[in-house]
Design a binder for these strands. Sequence first.
RNA 1: GCGGGUAUAGCUCAGCUGGUUAGAGCGCCAGAUUGUGGCUCUGGAGGCCGUGGGUUCGAAACCCACUACCCGCCCCA
Length: 426
Amino acid sequence: MIQTIRGTRDILPEEIALWHRIEAVASEGFRRYGFREIRTPIIEKTELFSRGVGESSDIVNKEMYTFTDRAREDRAGESITLRPECTASVVRSYIQHRMYADHSPGELTKLYYIGPMFRRERPQAGRYRQFFQVGAEVLGDSDDPAIEAEVIEMLDWFLGELKITDTTLLINSVGDATTRGDYLVGLREAIEPDLESYCEDCHHRYATNALRVFDCKNEACRALISRLPTITESLDEASREHFAQFRAHLDARGIGYTVRPEMVRGLDYYTRTAFEIVANSGLGAQNTIVGGGRYDGLSETLGGPPTKGFGFAFGLDRLVMALPESEAASRRAAAAPEIFIVSLGDEARAHAALVARELRRAGIAVLLDFSERKMKKALALADKLHARHALIIGENETASRRYGLKNLAEGTQESLAIDEIIAKFA
RNA sequence: GCGGGUAUAGCUCAGCUGGUUAGAGCGCCAGAUUGUGGCUCUGGAGGCCGUGGGUUCGAAACCCACUACCCGCCCCA
């Protein structure tokens, strides 16, 4: 049996209704907040991610699906990669299409996307190799922290609309590139004297990304970590002020948050504001549902003009898991047929097809039964498919052009002509 | 890349320390007389017990290898 590749999966019809629900809420939110959709390719030149996301990140180091495109044998193959995230692609598109060219000062380009991303990592709960993300980016020459608060306000509305309420907003400022660099040097100097006392993982982190030691769960390390300087107290004046304003904007909106000075993000491009929204229950070890932050300078890294950027992405796979069951059940019911047509005999069946066409043209969801089965079995099938009504068409009905419309939940039935049925569903 | 767990019917799972015809619930099919579903009752179909090897008189069970899936670590969009 041929089955799905590791880390990929089929999203079956029973689950699709939930995805549609989330997508509908998202696009409505984006509409209200002035975001327009963009669709970028799922493959890009590898260079886009190695430059944009960063050579030192784990994504680029070991988690990308990279291939060589051998379209022409007389040329060296080009390295292409299945996109591991979409921010770099959106910024690439922003530059490529010169979206900034007609901007007036302070004008913003607000874009959102939805689609599959790929990461070559070992799958676990809520983490797949092909995963789906919805994300948005605000690009322009303004880094006003009010922009950040507004985006989070939108996410807040969004999660509320989906009845996902048991969440926590975590925020931090990682400073600009210079302060972050200086801080990293200082952090390593602070760790070094006690390096022997840290665990093996932390030795690795010390060598690659010292900020990560803050995530260590090892008891012995925790005590040492609590004495290390945090990036918050090392921020330059401008970043400190930016962060204070950001918090003030959240406060003004009544949005609660927790400052996590040790929270760092895995991508190299983040500057200043970083945030996550985590689910407090129900998702196991992979409980981050939204992650985002500011990335001033990414455009320049990709060869574009000086640009400020702020954005986020959330994982649809996890969001679907976090949806409450009540939400799930009502969505599934909405996908059921409105009318299941039960026809008895060849003549009636032929006529039923014409009736079905009329009803469908009138906008009604109709299911035809093509098999010859007894009415008893046909009604049982209608019931199993959660049809709300059965329309019974036999010899008598075919002759009289009046059909038996049965409400399957109530058990009531009435004899109606086709126009009357259509009027009933209008 | 590392660690742990699991693999038996379409699905969810039992199967005690090896013992001969491998079970349950749900689902599926048929019936409880004529053109009226759900509930109930009766009957039925359906399984190289993940794959390969080994131990044994005998293996779904024990051992080894492989594969797949799940959970976690690393890392995290």
